[in-house]
Design a protein around this nucleic acid. Structure first.
Length: 430
RNA sequence: GGAGAGGUGGCCGAGCGGCUGAAGGCAACGGUUUGCUAAACCGUCAUAGUUCUUAUAGGGCUAUCGAGGGUUCGAAUCCCUCCCUCUCCGCCA
């Protein structure tokens, strides 16, 4: 969430940001917010004045009582009457004030983040910039390639039909060597991030409360994408970003511990409401998938360097597995509302003949930290400041698995396990 | 699920109707002392909203002792509801 005083002082910047994000329809909201802010100030003054009167009165009574003032017993009746009237007025002012504040909060929570200067302006995904050079690794696929669905079925390692029977479409089951390969990927990625990239491993809760969802920005805007367990009012995490970032919700972080880097495996659950018909086959779009997520908490001045680090850590996995990929710098019209800057990493699918998103690395600056009140003191004396939070997938296994199966298939329809994964799978071929 | 205990500042911990934004300690910061380090001593040390001024600083007012409501002229303190933590019992992967 943006700082209200920033919006007050730089309304033009906020409007320009909304324009760049192709959210011109939100502009009215900002005007509404500023109007509410002015009304709120009036009411705050009224409320504070009434409270001040009340406090003065109480103080006087306390003093006179202490002195043993006898005449004041009579006066007390008068005071009670006055206090009663003022109390009612105060109650009304506070009720109104509460309403204004709630409306403001709702607008603020729904307002997207700033954009970093390096984010290209654009209308849609078509305007995303390719960042650097696409990275190609040679795989001899000089035969008719099978797609991941065909491979998964013929080798009996992926079972979408039975998964659908158990839960519904989009809940794949991994069987035999497929299950082992999935687990190998997860372990390999976690080991790489913890042993080589310096992350602390976290195994987070998969169900979270609403405050956590709000803290990272999935609530209220993307609430319809999240599975909700009504009976206990808990939400299935759409990404480990939610529980891991919220680990420090409401905390004053010890400055010496910054930057904090966590790597977490989690299953991820997404309703994908409204996305039927687009890339729905097999792993291209699922309701449950596995992902290793990197999360960082940094000092504000270090966050953009940290973003490059996260991106390079995600790339390192693909380089190690020799999977062709490219990096996109998302444009203003395509970047998610919470992020100020975001790289997507896409893996190549030889069967689909296109790139598939496997990672998203984002800086949120203080947008999440303000929502979740995660602060630090730059040095011993100074005032608390919000940290910057970042995260990146490193990586999601579903699209990675598509690309891996397809690239490592043999003319006979088997799968060669990438060398670095073999010590995790315990076998060399499927 | 049942019974009990408890939730106070960056941390620990006192307070149990008005003099408490909150004792004391730790940590932190500034200083004195010191050959250096350590120790000792002195001082400073919450956050947010709002407003004023001789306005890169200072002052006033308001709020905040898990959350929300209530009682009261006045609540960290009394009452109610909820949430969370801990201990014991039951159930259970």
């Amino acid at each position: 969430m943006l700082d209200i005083s920033y919006i007050r002082q730089n309304p033009d910047e906020v409007l320009a940001m909304l324009h760049n994000r192709q959210l011109a329809s939100e502009i009215q909201k900002v005007n509404e917010l500023l109007a509410l802010d002015n009304k709120r100030k009036e009411l705050v003054k009224k409320s504070d004045d009434l409270k001040s009167l009340r406090n003065q009165r109480s103080k006087e009574i306390a003093e006179r009582k202490k002195r043993g003032d006898k005449s004041f017993g009579l006066e007390l009746e008068e005071i009670r009457k006055i206090a009663d009237v003022e109390g009612m007025e105060l109650a009304k002012v506070d009720t109104d004030l509460g309403q204004f504040e709630e409306e403001m909060e709702n607008i603020l929570l729904a307002l997207p983040n700033k954009l970093h200067a390096s984010v290209p302006t654009g209308r849609s995904a078509a305007d995303n910039q390719i960042y650097g050079e696409p990275v190609a690794f040679v795989h001899d696929l000089d035969f008719p390639v099978k797609n991941h669905l065909e491979l998964g079925k013929s080798l009996s390692i992926l079972d979408f039909e039975r998964g659908a029977k158990v839960s519904g479409a989009g809940f794949p089951a991994y069987i035999g060597k497929g299950a082992r390969l999935e687990r190998a990927l997860i372990n390999f990625m976690l080991d790489m991030h913890t042993e080589r990239h310096g992350y602390t491993e976290v195994f987070p809760p998969f169900l979270v409360n609403r405050e956590s969802l709000r803290g990272t920005g999935q609530w209220p805007k993307f609430a319809d994408q999240v599975y909700h367990i009504g009976e206990d009012d808990l939400y299935a995490i759409p990404t480990a970003e939610v529980p891991v970032t919220n680990l420090h919700r409401g905390e004053m972080l010890d400055t010496a511990t910054l930057p904090i880097s966590y790597a977490a495996y989690s299953a991820c659950f997404r309703r994908e409401a409204g996305s039927y018909g687009k890339d729905t086959r097999g792993f291209l779009r699922v309701h449950q998938f596995n992902k290793v997520e990197m999360v960082k908490f940094t000092r504000p001045e270090e966050s953009y360097a940290a973003l490059e680090e996260i991106r390079s850590h995600a790339e390192a996995i693909l380089v190690a597995l020799k999977i062709p990929y490219r990096v996109l710098l998302l444009c203003s019209g395509d970047i998610s509302a919470n992020a100020t800057k975001c790289y997507d990493i896409e893996v190549w699918s030889p069967a689909e003949q296109k790139y598939l998103e496997a990672s998203s690395c984002s800086n949120f600056e203080d947008y999440q930290a303000r929502r979740s009140n995660i602060r630090f003191k730059p040095d011993g004396k100074s005032k608390p400041e919000f940290v910057h939070t970042l995260n990146g997938s490193g990586l999601a296994t579903s699209r990675l698995m598509v690309s891996l199966l397809e690239h490592y298939q043999t003319p006979e329809g088997h799968i060669k396990v990438p060398e670095l994964l073999q010590r995790y799978t315990g076998f060399e071929e499927i």
